[in-house]
Write a protein that binds this DNA or RNA. Structure first.
Lengths: 148, 148
DNA sequence: GTCATTCCGTTGTCAGTAGCAACTATAAGT
DNA sequence: ACTTATAGTTGCTACTGACAACGGAATGAC
């Protein structure tokens, strides 16, 4: 019967491994398209949250606004996002996806999910469902410590 | 009853979230010490696998040898690793941890596990054990696709 | 209404991450 | 001995990420 500490240690280790393997795979999947991992993450955030200001996007991504500004710059150059000045506040900008940006994200997402599907093809559906629930609980617990 | 595709999609999403939250937390935990995330990963690999050649270290970390060489350089400058020429092969070097390197990794690891422990403090032990098993299965499945 | 303060986004700078290609030196195969 | 393969380093390029300083716009105090 492992102690709380031992459990924490093993879980940290296990998550660490999972992260490495996924990270590596994602890089491969994403970078063979036109964008980097961070750029893809920005696309994803805009898909999920809709048009955002720069600061809001930075907050969502847990990044500094300067870093975010440069990531967005790269996406602007490639015509995947649109930057429109906010009429209500001359300082602010609204960032949104172009059709090309939406299409690119769909494609990449498709690739990633296909990879994931191949990965779990040998696991029983109950196992996957169980993992899903538990991973969500872990994420919620982690976010709770991160947030306020 | 979700389809295989739907399951893959949800699982991808869930793992993605977990990765982001952990990544962010790890950066905070690690970088307040003397090393970056990649440098810490190199320390970790040397702790686990013992002394390694540069190429072997690069393989373990899924990185290019040039990238690895520079990461090791940084650790050398800070006196956390030792580089000894291999007597059996004049081209090769043996990388090992200095006592300072071992101590630093222990400290960081302690911090990370403490964080993990706090995170799971509100979850039932059975939940954590379940997550552990499932995450390991997922990692194994992912590694199987990655490897050969 | 003006002035200080705060907020939004950009830019400069610095350190780190990462891969590819070219290079040196050593080792191994023929 | 000559070719080929391997080990590690270095040059280059692009991206990541934070902090600090800045200019312009909004807001609050008075």
């Amino acid at each position: 019967m492992p102690s709380h500490q031992e459990r924490a240690d093993e879980l940290y280790e296990a998550i660490n491994q999972l992260i490495r393997v996924h990270q590596f795979r994602d890089r491969d999947c994403i970078c063979c398209h036109d964008v980097s991992v961070a750029q893809c993450y920005a696309l994803e955030t805009l898909v999920k949250r809709g048009p955002l200001r720069l600061q809001a996007l930075a907050d969502e991504m847990y990044l500094d606004k300067s870093t975010t500004s440069r990531v967005v710059d790269a996406l602007l150059r490639k015509n995947y996002v649109l930057k429109v000045p906010d009429p209500a506040d001359q300082r602010a900008v609204q960032l949104s996806l172009t059709p090309a940006g939406k299409a690119l994200y769909r494609t990449i997402r498709q690739d990633l999910v296909t990879e994931e599907a191949a990965m779990i093809s040998k696991l029983a559906p109950e196992v996957v469902d169980g993992a899903l629930t538990l991973i969500r609980q872990l994420t919620a617990a982690a976010r709770a410590r991160l947030g306020p």
